[in-house]
């Protein structure tokens, strides 16, 4: 924003009355930058998130599961597309954002740096990871930036479907053979704490939270959302007949919430800073796909330019 007091007052009037900021509205430069960073990180998470699940497309154990998984991974590519497009309304290009991802200047959700070792991991990602994502994202449907809020409405509908299919895939395993049930428990054991860590550090250590709250980008604190996720998920684990790997998890009547053990935030910071099981693999895969596809994108651009030239000559 050019920074006139009038423009700033207009911006806060919209935010404070729970209205929506649209691309042509004046906005503080820091607000614009924060949104670009957050939307890009979200978009990057969608496309990197295609890898751990895509890992099982070729091996899905039935044709029905293969179709469901293909459709799900396709949805994620679609979410990436909406989110990059929404970020583009703030004056950055998708190419530029991908460049920032590929050169480690922007991040993606740390959860996708964990490996999918068995088929049950596909179910666990749907149930836990998508469940945590929805808990984080539903409030974003009321985010102060209009294009982001609208993209999130559609994304949340699809994520909610993904979460149910993940739960249903696990339920089928837990009602199956002893080996299938053990596979499901093992997946829960590995994905539980990384899923809790998806809500970020405790509020007292969170760097961006206060400003984002003031701007109507963030509505709830990390701790509150994490609690909400545990309260939603613990009874679902009972239905599945699986044990959440936390001996201290129990309902607290007085608080009206579950008590639970916090994830290892040191591990979260290690993974965020690049030292997770799959960080290098995920980025190498992404960069290789992009690099190997360069000649295709160049051809498409050259062809479009030739056509435009011919159309011009014919006109």
């Amino acid at each position: 924003m050019a920074g006139t007091d009038e423009q700033e007052a207009a911006f806060y009037a919209i935010v404070d009355s729970d209205g929506r900021i649209e691309p042509r509205d004046a906005m503080p430069e820091a607000y614009r930058k924060t949104l670009i960073r957050q939307m890009a990180q979200h978009a990057h998470s969608e496309i990197i998130g295609m890898q751990p699940e895509g890992n099982w497309i070729s091996r899905a154990p039935s044709l029905r599961r293969k179709a469901i998984l293909l459709a799900k991974v396709q949805d994620e590519a679609g979410h990436g597309l909406y989110l990059y497009a929404a970020a583009e309304t703030l004056g950055v290009s998708r190419d530029h954002l991908l460049e920032l991802l590929h050169t480690h200047q922007q991040k993606y959700s740390s959860i996708f740096n964990y490996p999918t070792l068995t088929w049950a991991d596909v179910g666990a990602i749907g149930w836990l990871v998508d469940g945590a994502a929805i808990t984080n994202q539903v409030p974003l449907t009321r985010c102060s930036y209009g294009p982001y809020a609208r993209a999130m409405v559609r994304i949340c509908k699809e994520e909610s479907f993904h979460q149910r299919q993940g739960f249903e895939a696990l339920l089928t395993l837990t009602r199956g053979s002893a080996r299938q049930k053990a596979m499901a428990q093992d997946a829960l054991d590995r994905w539980w704490y990384p899923s809790l860590a998806m809500f970020g550090p405790p509020d007292r250590e969170s760097t961006h939270s206060d400003q984002s709250m003031r701007w109507g980008i963030k509505r709830f604190g990390n701790d509150e959302l994490r609690q909400r996720f545990v309260d939603m998920t613990a009874p679902q684990a009972d239905v599945l007949g699986l044990t959440i790997p936390d001996p201290d998890l129990r309902w607290n009547d007085e608080r009206g919430h579950y008590d639970f053990t916090q994830p290892d935030f040191d591990e979260l910071f290690r993974v965020i800073s690049g030292d997770g099981p799959c960080n290098r693999q995920r980025m190498e895969h992404r960069v290789a796909a992009h690099t190997e596809g360069a000649w295709v994108r160049e051809a498409a651009a050259a062809y479009a330019a030739k056509r435009a030239k011919r159309a011009e000559a014919a006109a």
């Binding site: 295609m50 070729s58 459709a71 396709q74 590519a77 597309l81």
Partner: peptide, 20 residues
């Protein structure tokens, strides 16, 4: 299906998955 998450651009990830 082998192309999904390694197509030359995001639109083609969607298209390949769709055709598959």
């Amino acid at each position: 299906g082998e192309w999904v998450a390694r197509a030359p651009e995001l639109e083609e990830d969607v298209a390949m998955a769709n055709v598959a």
